[in-house]
Design a protein around this nucleic acid. Structure first.
Length: 312
DNA sequence: CCCCAGGCTTTTC
DNA sequence: GAAAAGCATGGG
């Protein structure tokens, strides 16, 4: 039996852009369930379809995820509580009229509130390689180490995989795991070590949810772990801990800070010092409370409109 | 062949 | 201290 849920909003909800903008690598399109995007979230299979500009439909065999009613979970997952009008400051469109025009269709983009462990592992796979290789790594990790889940949908047997648990990755063989990390042994070892830290409680992702923790403290704590620097720490904060004030700076963000906002630091080589300078600059450009939320909208717009890249 | 992709760590000047 | 090299593969 499948539960069906319809989500309707007063604003536009570009579901495909939200799921494939590079903040999650867990969603896929299947040839045998056309028009739907599928994933396993909180061990629950989900099928999503866009119905119109501001509504989408969800099918799931469970009516709750992580003990939370499906509708409430989805509302939170898609951050439908956030009014995206607040992510850019009042006068932004006057200061950057050309950019504002370009941003138009990207403004309804939203940040997903994802699982912090999954976010940590996914973004540890995202160092100096293209988006399609990141997706490939995450897919191989889930297929190799995640629990296999079968679900009947549209009278077809659909096979999906849950994201691997911390315990499963912590006990993985380094060489075997490296097949899932683009054959990068160092990355595989880092993922195993980080998973072990979570299992042992050395990294307590639940307590890091505390919103009283300052952003720089969060960044310093997470980047203690080998394989996690400032950028990935900020990604974990933004996408995995719901810290919409975190502003991860990667090669694309650095490029648009230089091209669109005339950042001098963006022209220098990326180091911890220049990272923190650009982080401070960003907070003068967008609303600091939603710096990362705005940053992701700018990121996706830059990649698609300027660099002409695809996210999958 | 080159350079670059949602970087981080280690080595070298 | 800052800069350069190494990591691995695919695509432009």
């Amino acid at each position: 039996m499948l539960y069906t849920l319809k989500i309707k909003s007063s604003w536009s909800l570009p579901v495909k852009d939200i799921l494939f903008s590079g903040q999650s690598f867990l969603w896929n399109e299947h040839a045998n369930v056309q028009g739907y995007y599928s994933s396993v979230i909180g061990s629950v299979p989900l099928f999503i379809r866009q119905l119109s500009g501001n509504e989408f439909e969800i099918h799931s065999p469970c009516n709750e995820i992580n003990g939370i009613p499906l509708q409430e979970f989805i509302h939170n997952y898609f951050s439908l509580d956030i009014d995206t009008k607040n992510v850019f400051p009042e006068g932004f469109h006057l200061l950057h009229p050309e950019l504002w025009k370009l941003l138009g269709e990207y403004l309804p983009l939203r940040i997903l509130r994802q699982d912090p462990f999954q976010t940590m592992i996914m973004f540890m796979c995202a160092q100096g390689i293209g988006m399609h290789l990141i997706r490939k790594q995450v897919a191989m990790l889930t297929e190799t180490y995640g629990e296999r889940i079968t679900v009947t949908f549209q009278e077809k047997e659909i096979v999906l995989h849950d994201f691997p648990t911390p315990l499963r990755l912590a006990s993985a063989d380094p060489f075997a795991l490296s097949r899932c990390t683009n054959n990068n042994r160092v990355r595989a070892a880092n993922i195993i070590a980080a998973s072990r830290s979570v299992v042992e409680g050395k990294i307590d992702l639940h307590s890091l949810r505390n919103r009283d923790i300052p952003l720089n403290e969060l960044r310093m704590t997470l980047s203690q772990q080998s394989g996690i620097g400032f950028k990935i720490a900020d990604c974990i904060a933004l996408f995995g801990l719901g810290r919409f004030d975190a502003f991860p700076i990667d090669t694309h963000v650095r490029q648009y800070l230089g091209a669109w906002f005339n950042s001098a630091a963006a022209l220098r080589s990326l180091s911890p010092v220049t990272y923190l300078i650009m982080d401070a600059e960003a907070r003068t450009i967008v609303n600091p409370e939603f710096a990362g939320f705005a940053g992701h909208i700018l990121f996706h717009c830059w990649r698609k409109e300027i660099k002409k890249l695809r996210s999958f």
